[in-house]
Design a protein around this nucleic acid. Structure first.
Lengths: 170, 170
DNA sequence: GTCGATTGCGCAATAT
DNA sequence: GATATTGCGCAATCGA
């Protein structure tokens, strides 16, 4: 967790002043640093695929005041984009969080459902046993109405009737 | 979606060469730009608010060769961190993806479980109905034992009742 | 073609 | 001390 100690940067501030800054840069212990958007073309004619014409700071003319970077318009665009980025990231994070929560909910519900299944299964089992018992009782009644060892009935060749197939789907 | 046209940056490359580059920057369509880490102190000893004192590059002494930025060590650290960052982000993204997938799986399983519950419920219902029927039959038997319609043995109307598929797997 | 939304990336601060 | 996370800004790209 945490949450950093972020410092609001005053857009356009050093902007107006900065012009050329070289390496160097002293890092005051307690001070925050601001990244000045210095740009530089990188490995123009790189080895890989995209070949690009190099063209580093071509002597061509630049429109606008003193380069894109200093223009108010540029700054404005940047700021807008920064805002959009922030927003987008927030949403993204929120979404992830929601998804995680959804997982939890679903897990819970799953457990509930499984419990219910267990219960229903048990009930079914009990009922089935009762059925069997009844069948036997009836058989007895029919089988030995008055005689002792006679077993004439047995008509219900139910043999193998109550088979429960314990198949496993999947 | 998308996937940008990212270009591998050769760390330490322009480092040695770059000295001063101002705004400008031409943005070649296919070319990538590298952000040179120019740093600038922001609100140095700022108490809380918007800090007004500028004070860029205070005359304090910096250790190391020619400033932290140019040091090999610095560059190395940066690169290591960049790597770590990349890794971390990858994992983060992967995790989010996994979570999403988990949601899908759980949803599927939920549906399966619900279907099963439905089925079990139906079976239970059938069995119960059978039970009632039997009870009635028995009542009839008891109620009218010597009457004309005595029917001692039509007990096993076991019509198709006993099948249950008690599949429990997973 | 402008503008917001995404995305990858590097930096720096902070956490582990 | 080194790696891992996190917030943030930049730039490129996508999409409306």
């Amino acid at each position: 967790m945490s949450e950093g100690s972020q410092q609001k940067i005053n857009t356009e501030q050093n902007r107006g002043t900065v012009s050329v800054i070289q390496s160097q840069a002293s890092a005051p212990p307690g001070g925050s640093l601001q990244q000045v958007p210095q740009l530089v073309p990188v490995t123009p004619a790189g080895g890989g695929g995209g070949g690009g014409s190099s063209k580093a700071t071509p002597p061509g003319k630049m429109k606008k005041t003193s380069g894109d970077k200093d223009s108010d318009e540029y700054r404005q665009r940047r700021e807008r984009n920064n805002l959009a980025v922030k927003k987008s990231r927030m949403r993204s994070k929120q979404k992830a969080q929601d998804t995680q929560q959804r997982v939890n909910e679903l897990k819970e519900e799953n457990e509930r459902l499984e419990a219910k299944i267990k219960l229903l299964s048990k009930e079914l089992s009990v009922l089935k046993d009762l059925f069997l018992e009844h069948a036997h009782n009836l058989a007895d009644n029919v089988q030995a109405p008055g005689v002792e060892g006679a077993s004439p009935a047995h008509n219900n060749n139910n043999n193998g009737a109550c088979n429960n197939n314990n198949n496993s789907s999947q």
